[in-house]
Every structure is written in structure tokens, then in C-alpha cells.
Simulated scan of single mutants.
Amino acid sequence: MTSAASEGRPEPVERADGADGVAAADTADTVELLGLVAHLQHVAFGRLAEDAHEAPTTAQQLELSRLAAAAVQRRDRVLGRVAQLGGDPERSLGAYTRLLDDFDNRTQPSTWWERLLRSYVAEGVSDDFCRIAAGAVDDVTRELLLEVLDDAAHAELAVAELETAGAQDEVLVSRLALWGRRLVGEALGVVQQAMAGHPSLARLIGRREGATTEPVVDQPATGDPKLFGELTAEHTRRMSRLGLTA
């Protein structure tokens, strides 16, 4: 009988030893993280496309539209890995459909600069969380995720634009610093919500090196002091790049 492996097709997630030698129990958690990263790239595409439409200059419109296209490519690479592990790409992506609704409703920007900073902060916190969780997955998946998450083109654009604007307007700097504090609070709330609603994410965080808590069976983890300390420290570093107080 011809096996799925010999035909180059992914084996089901339920098998004892999954694709690339990943244990089935770990594969399910890995697919969950991949779904989150794919969703974040999917959301980034929509936001970047909207930002391109709102951008004040043609040069910004062109650059943001190119970044939107790149987000689609990254999303599809991640979903390709879901399929390799025997998961359902559409289901994995759809599992997080409502995750950012409250964040979006609570953080509607009123200016172009607030819009740029919102993406910079939100993407920074979410990417940091996924990067930390990736420390508990298989080597092949980790390499892919770190490559996807390390694409800093949009962050560099935001930094350049915000630095230039802030150098010319001290009032704007003060306002953006306050806006950044509000944004990070909301973004950390999304992380907590994701872990509570998706136990697989909490298990990955609990298995990473240096974790301060272990996941509790049938009890969603809502926080990890070390995790939130790391996320806050990285946010402070990013704000410092802009000359803003976190």
C-alpha cells in the first residue's frame, strides 16, 4: 500500500509522530500558533492597505501597498506550513477571526501619526509574543516563524516617519507618548485574551525556556509575569527608538 509520506502528502495531525518528527500533541499546539501568526499577517494586509489609502503622499502610498502585498506572501507561507503538518489552513486562520475586534474598536486613530503608531505598537507586541511562543515548537516551524516575524520593513517605515514628525513638533511627541501607553495596555490585553481563549498558546508559553508558570489542565492561563515583563520591556525599547516615553 502506498503511504501518504511516500506520495509527499502531509500525514494527519492525530498520528503518534507527525510531519518532520513532531509529536502529535505538540503538532496541535504548533498549528494553533501558526494560525495566530497567519491571522496577524492577514490583519496586517488589511491595515496596510487601509493605511496606503489614507497616506498623505504618493511615495507613502506606494510603499505601504508593497508592504501589504508582502504580508499576504508571509501569511501564505505560514498557512503552507499548517498544511504540511496536516492541519486545515482555513480553519487555523479562522480560529482568531474576532481576536482583534475590541482592540480595533478601542484604538481608533484620529490622525495619520496615531495610525502609524498604532500599527507599530500592536504589531510589535503581537510579534514579540509569537516569537517567544515559537521557542517551544519544532525547529522547522521555528525557523519559518522567526523569518516571518523578523521582517521589519513596516516598523522601519513607521520609525522614520514618526521620528521626522516628532523632531519638528514637541506637542506631537507628548501626545504620541500618551497614545503609546494606551496602545500597549490594549495590546497586552489582547495577548491575555488570546492565551485564555486558546490553551495551546498558553501551553507553548509554559514550555518555553525560563517560563515562570506551568499550564494548568482545563484552566486557561491568563498571564505569566515573566512573559508580560518581556513584552513590556520590548515595547519600552521600541518607544525609545522614537524618542517617546513608554
Results as ranks from 00 to 15, higher is better:
142 R>W: 04
100 L>W: 04
67 L>C: 06
42 H>N: 11
89 P>K: 03
111 T>K: 03
83 A>S: 13
99 L>I: 12
53 H>M: 10
72 V>K: 05
80 G>M: 05
79 L>Q: 04
145 L>W: 02
146 L>R: 15
54 E>A: 07
155 A>M: 06
101 D>H: 13
50 E>L: 06
99 L>A: 13
63 E>S: 10
50 E>V: 04
133 A>V: 06
89 P>D: 00
95 A>E: 10
94 G>Q: 07
151 D>P: 01
53 H>R: 14
60 Q>T: 08
140 V>G: 08
72 V>C: 12
110 S>K: 15
91 R>P: 00
100 L>S: 03
62 L>H: 11
75 R>V: 05
45 F>N: 11
130 C>R: 05
99 L>C: 08
93 L>P: 04
70 A>E: 12
107 T>R: 08
46 G>P: 00
115 R>L: 07
64 L>I: 04
155 A>R: 12
148 V>S: 05
58 T>E: 02
132 I>W: 05
75 R>C: 02
85 L>H: 00
142 R>Y: 05
49 A>Q: 11
130 C>S: 13
123 E>S: 12
158 A>Q: 04
64 L>C: 06
95 A>R: 13
87 G>F: 09
102 D>W: 05
119 S>E: 03
97 T>K: 15
125 V>C: 02
64 L>E: 04
137 V>E: 03
42 H>T: 09
82 V>M: 03
90 E>T: 15
47 R>F: 01
102 D>N: 10
116 L>Y: 01
108 Q>T: 12
62 L>G: 14
144 L>S: 09
77 R>S: 14
106 R>N: 12
91 R>Q: 14
135 G>V: 05
52 A>Y: 13
104 D>Q: 15
84 Q>R: 15
107 T>Y: 02
63 E>T: 11
125 V>G: 02
85 L>D: 01
64 L>P: 03
142 R>P: 04
82 V>E: 03
146 L>W: 15
131 R>Q: 14
71 A>Q: 06
109 P>H: 06
49 A>P: 02
152 A>L: 15
122 A>S: 08
147 E>N: 15
74 R>V: 11
104 D>P: 05
134 A>P: 03
43 V>Y: 00
156 E>W: 01
62 L>T: 14
50 E>R: 07
120 Y>M: 02
148 V>N: 00
54 E>K: 07
121 V>W: 00
49 A>I: 11
156 E>I: 08
124 G>R: 01
124 G>A: 08
41 Q>S: 08
123 E>D: 15
57 T>A: 13
117 L>T: 02
54 E>N: 09
42 H>L: 01
88 D>N: 15
80 G>L: 07
42 H>Q: 02
45 F>A: 09
151 D>T: 05
102 D>I: 07
145 L>I: 07
58 T>D: 02
53 H>P: 01
134 A>H: 06
114 E>G: 13
156 E>D: 14
76 D>Y: 09
121 V>D: 01
145 L>Q: 05
130 C>N: 07
67 L>E: 03
91 R>V: 12
74 R>P: 04
68 A>T: 12
89 P>E: 01
57 T>F: 14
126 S>W: 09
149 L>T: 08
78 V>H: 01
91 R>Y: 07
133 A>S: 02
87 G>K: 06
153 A>R: 10
80 G>R: 03
129 F>Y: 07
133 A>Y: 02
82 V>A: 04
141 T>S: 09
108 Q>V: 13
61 Q>L: 09
